[in-house]
Simulated scan of single mutants.
Amino acid sequence: MNNSIFIFPGQGSQKIGMGKDFYDNSSLAKEMIEKASQRVGFDFTSLLFEENDRLEQTEYTQPAILLVSLIAHRLFNEVCKVTPKAALGHSLGEFSALSAAGALNYLDAVELVHQRGLLMKHACESINAGMMALLGLDDATVEAIAAKEQELGKKVWAANYNGDGQIVLAGNKDDLASLEPLFKEAGAKKAVLLPMSVASHCPLLSAAQPSLEGYLEQWLTESFTTPVISNVTSNAYQTKTEAKALLSQQLISPVKYKQSILAVESSVDCFIEFGGSVLKGLNKRITQKPTYSITDMKSLEEVLALF
Rank of each mutant, 00 (worst) to 15 (best):
M1R: 12
S4A: 14
S4D: 08
P9H: 02
Q11F: 05
G12T: 08
Q14E: 14
K15N: 09
I16R: 00
I16M: 10
G17I: 01
M18G: 04
D21F: 07
D24E: 15
N25M: 04
N25L: 07
N25K: 14
S27D: 14
L28T: 15
L28F: 10
K30S: 14
M32L: 15
E34D: 15
S37A: 13
Q38M: 12
V40Q: 07
G41C: 05
F44L: 12
L47A: 10
L48C: 11
L48I: 11
F49A: 03
F49L: 08
E56A: 13
E59L: 07
Y60S: 00
P63R: 05
P63D: 05
A64D: 11
L67R: 06
V68P: 01
H73L: 11
L75K: 07
F76Y: 15
F76Q: 06
F76L: 07
N77L: 11
T83G: 02
T83H: 12
P84E: 13
K85C: 03
K85I: 12
H90N: 12
G93W: 02
A97K: 08
L98E: 05
A101L: 08
A103T: 03
A103Y: 08
L107T: 12
E111K: 14
E111V: 01
G117R: 06
G117I: 00
L118A: 01
L119K: 06
M120Y: 00
M120W: 06
I127L: 13
A129H: 10
T141Y: 10
A144L: 07
E149W: 09
E151V: 08
G153H: 14
K154W: 11
V156E: 04
V156I: 15
N162S: 11
D164Q: 13
Q166T: 02
G171H: 09
G171C: 08
D175K: 13
L179K: 11
L179G: 06
P181K: 13
K184W: 02
A188K: 09
K189P: 00
V192D: 05
M196V: 15
V198T: 12
P203Q: 09
L204P: 01
L205G: 00
A208T: 07
Q209E: 15
S211E: 15
E217Y: 05
Q218V: 00
Q218P: 00
L220Y: 13
T226P: 04
S230M: 00
T233C: 07
Y237V: 07
Q238R: 14
T241G: 06
L246A: 10
L246G: 07
L247Y: 08
S248C: 13
Q249I: 01
Q250A: 09
L251M: 15
I252G: 00
Y257I: 00
K258H: 14
Q259C: 02
S260K: 04
D269A: 13
C270Q: 15
F271G: 05
E273V: 03
E273K: 02
F274I: 04
F274M: 11
S277M: 08
K280M: 15
G281M: 09
R285A: 13
Q288C: 03
Q288F: 10
K289A: 03
K289M: 10
K289D: 11
Y292G: 09
S293K: 09
S293Y: 03
D296I: 01
S299V: 07
A305K: 12
F307H: 14
